[in-house]
Measured scan of single mutants.
Amino acid sequence: QIFVKTLTGKTITLEVEPSDTIENVKAKIQDKEGIPPDQQRLIFAGKQLEDGRTLSDYNIQKESTLHLVL
C-alpha cells in the first residue's frame, strides 16, 4: 500500500502493486475521493509523475507517500 497526502492534509491509503501505472493510481484516487484523474497531479520526491509510467519506474515502494496537487 502507499499513502497519498492531499493539500488539505488528508491522507488516503491505496492498495497498489509496483506494476501499477500512475494512471491506474489516479483512477483509484477517483474511486475513493471522486476527483477526476485529469485534475490530479501526483508528486513524489519533488517530481511530477507521468501517467504512462509505473510506480516501480519511480522507485515508489510500499509505505511511500505521494503528494496530490489539484
Rank of each mutant, 00 (worst) to 15 (best):
14 L>T: 02
61 Q>N: 10
47 K>C: 12
13 T>R: 07
65 T>A: 04
34 G>M: 05
35 I>A: 04
62 K>G: 15
66 L>H: 01
37 P>S: 12
64 S>K: 04
4 V>Q: 00
12 I>T: 03
36 P>C: 10
54 T>D: 03
50 E>A: 08
22 I>Y: 01
69 V>H: 12
17 E>Y: 11
22 I>P: 02
58 Y>S: 03
51 D>E: 09
59 N>Q: 09
8 T>N: 12
47 K>W: 07
17 E>F: 11
64 S>G: 06
10 K>G: 08
12 I>R: 02
41 R>L: 11
38 D>M: 10
19 S>R: 07
53 R>W: 11
4 V>I: 14
66 L>R: 01
2 I>G: 01
2 I>M: 05
5 K>S: 08
22 I>N: 01
54 T>G: 03
47 K>I: 14
31 D>T: 10
32 K>C: 10
15 E>F: 14
58 Y>M: 04
63 E>I: 04
31 D>G: 10
53 R>K: 14
68 L>P: 00
64 S>H: 07
27 A>S: 11
52 G>T: 10
44 F>G: 02
13 T>F: 08
24 N>M: 15
7 L>I: 11
24 N>D: 13
25 V>Q: 00
31 D>A: 14
23 E>I: 13
22 I>C: 03
30 Q>N: 09
20 D>G: 03
19 S>Q: 10
44 F>L: 05
21 T>N: 04
39 Q>I: 10
11 T>S: 07
5 K>P: 01
29 I>V: 05
15 E>N: 13
36 P>H: 11
68 L>Y: 02
48 Q>A: 11
9 G>D: 05
64 S>E: 08
29 I>C: 02
38 D>T: 11
60 I>P: 01
36 P>Q: 07
22 I>K: 00
18 P>R: 05
22 I>L: 05
4 V>E: 01
58 Y>L: 05
46 G>E: 05
20 D>H: 06
10 K>N: 08
14 L>M: 04
3 F>D: 03
35 I>L: 06
12 I>A: 02
4 V>T: 02
30 Q>E: 10
45 A>Y: 09
26 K>Q: 02
69 V>K: 08
35 I>T: 07
8 T>V: 08
38 D>I: 10
50 E>P: 03
63 E>W: 13
44 F>N: 02
33 E>R: 05
3 F>Y: 14
26 K>Y: 03
68 L>V: 05
49 L>V: 04
69 V>D: 06
10 K>D: 08
38 D>C: 15
23 E>W: 15
32 K>D: 03
48 Q>P: 11
18 P>N: 07
20 D>M: 10
21 T>G: 03
53 R>L: 12
9 G>V: 02
69 V>P: 01
28 K>Q: 10
54 T>P: 05
26 K>I: 03
56 S>V: 08
67 H>S: 09
62 K>P: 15
63 E>S: 11
34 G>L: 05
69 V>S: 09
8 T>M: 11
65 T>W: 08
31 D>Q: 13
30 Q>H: 14
16 V>P: 02
67 H>D: 09
25 V>R: 00
57 D>A: 06
20 D>E: 10
4 V>G: 01
22 I>Q: 02
62 K>S: 15
22 I>T: 04
45 A>Q: 15
33 E>V: 14
23 E>N: 08
48 Q>Y: 13
6 T>W: 13
21 T>H: 04
64 S>M: 11
8 T>Y: 12
13 T>K: 08
25 V>C: 05
64 S>Q: 08
62 K>M: 15
9 G>H: 05
67 H>R: 08
40 Q>I: 12
54 T>F: 06
65 T>S: 05
54 T>R: 12
1 Q>I: 15
37 P>R: 14
8 T>A: 12
10 K>W: 10
32 K>M: 11
7 L>M: 15
9 G>Q: 04
54 T>K: 10
57 D>P: 00
55 L>C: 06
4 V>Y: 02
15 E>M: 15
67 H>N: 07
24 N>F: 15
17 E>A: 09
45 A>T: 05
62 K>V: 13
68 L>F: 03
2 I>D: 01
42 L>M: 03
16 V>W: 13
29 I>K: 00
16 V>E: 00
8 T>H: 13
48 Q>W: 12
24 N>S: 14
50 E>F: 07
18 P>L: 14
54 T>A: 06
48 Q>I: 13
43 I>S: 10
5 K>L: 15
9 G>C: 08
2 I>N: 01
22 I>D: 00
67 H>I: 13
60 I>A: 02
42 L>D: 00
39 Q>V: 10
23 E>D: 08
18 P>G: 10
40 Q>T: 05
68 L>W: 02
23 E>Y: 15
1 Q>L: 15
12 I>N: 01
20 D>P: 01
40 Q>M: 13
25 V>E: 00
48 Q>S: 11
8 T>L: 10
25 V>D: 00
66 L>K: 01
54 T>Q: 07
8 T>S: 13
9 G>E: 04
13 T>Y: 08
58 Y>E: 03
29 I>N: 00
10 K>V: 09
70 L>W: 12
40 Q>L: 06
67 H>K: 07
22 I>H: 01
32 K>P: 02
37 P>L: 14
38 D>N: 11
62 K>A: 15
6 T>R: 07
43 I>G: 03
43 I>E: 08
30 Q>F: 15
51 D>N: 11
20 D>C: 08
14 L>D: 01
51 D>V: 06
66 L>W: 02
62 K>D: 15
38 D>W: 13
56 S>G: 10
43 I>A: 06
11 T>A: 05
49 L>P: 01
50 E>I: 07
62 K>Q: 14
70 L>R: 09
47 K>Y: 10
3 F>R: 06
52 G>K: 12
70 L>E: 08
54 T>H: 06
60 I>N: 01
19 S>V: 06
43 I>M: 14
63 E>P: 03
50 E>G: 04
6 T>S: 07
55 L>N: 00
33 E>M: 13
7 L>H: 14
3 F>H: 09
35 I>W: 13
56 S>W: 09
31 D>F: 12
52 G>N: 11
33 E>H: 08
46 G>Q: 05
25 V>A: 02
30 Q>Y: 15
56 S>E: 12
18 P>K: 06
31 D>H: 13
5 K>D: 04
31 D>S: 11
51 D>M: 05
12 I>C: 03
69 V>G: 06
49 L>F: 02
40 Q>G: 03
19 S>E: 10
56 S>P: 03
33 E>I: 14
48 Q>T: 14
7 L>Q: 14
48 Q>G: 07
28 K>D: 02
21 T>L: 11
21 T>A: 04
39 Q>G: 06
3 F>P: 01
55 L>V: 08
46 G>K: 04
61 Q>P: 13
23 E>A: 14
2 I>A: 02
39 Q>T: 08
50 E>V: 08
53 R>Q: 09
45 A>H: 12
53 R>Y: 14
32 K>A: 13
2 I>V: 06
43 I>V: 10
54 T>W: 04
18 P>F: 15
28 K>S: 04
31 D>P: 02
32 K>S: 10
60 I>M: 04
53 R>G: 06
55 L>G: 00
49 L>D: 00
62 K>R: 09
2 I>H: 01
40 Q>F: 15
59 N>R: 07
37 P>D: 04
44 F>E: 01
18 P>Y: 11
29 I>A: 02
40 Q>E: 02
6 T>C: 12
65 T>I: 12
39 Q>K: 10
32 K>E: 07
57 D>N: 05
25 V>L: 12
20 D>V: 04
9 G>L: 04
54 T>Y: 07
2 I>S: 01
23 E>S: 14
